[in-house]
């Protein structure tokens, strides 16, 4: 099973090898989709693959060491009324979450593929894309 989580760290937790621990101690596959760190701590978007029990244990470990964990459901939202389906976003989206349907020529947004990198936000001429994290 694959699950995406947003992790929020305080500066202390930023120094712990948590990705290593999730992999070595809990047997999870961790894909870091996005990571940011600044003076008040850090934020990471990860995709975790593993069975349900290991995923649960991994999340509990993170919470125990003071990492804020919340499931990632929606990172970028498209306002369907504002979108003109011009396609300015499709060639810059690094994960192909945005693509043009060859039949209808409308822009499709596959939220599962979106890693909330935000590249589309300021590339959208009618400003239909909004980042939520």
């Amino acid at each position: 099973m694959k699950t995406k989580y947003i992790l929020n760290f305080n500066p202390e937790a930023s120094n712990l090898p948590i990705t290593h621990n999730l992999i070595a101690e809990y047997g999870l596959l961790v894909n870091i989709l996005r990571a940011e760190i600044d003076e008040v701590g850090g934020k990471m978007l990860i995709e975790v693959s593993g069975d349900e029990a290991s995923t649960k244990n991994g999340v509990e470990y993170l919470e125990k060491i003071g990492v804020g964990v919340r499931p990632f459901k929606e990172g970028v939202r498209r306002n369907d009324e504002t979108c003109t389906h011009c396609g300015a976003c499709v060639s810059i989206c690094p994960t192909d979450a945005l693509s043009i349907d060859p039949e209808t020529r409308k822009v499709k947004f596959d939220e599962d593929k979106c890693v909330a990198c935000g590249v589309c936000i300021d590339a959208c001429p009618p400003r239909a894309m909004e980042i939520l994290i």
Binding site: H85, C86, G87, C89, V90, S91, I100, R105, K106, P125
Partner: peptide
Amino acid sequence: GKVDIKGKEVPTSPLSSIS
């Protein structure tokens, strides 16, 4: 959705809304 530029496969965006 893709064009060849100097041997590189380059993704394209229309800008003009075909739909």
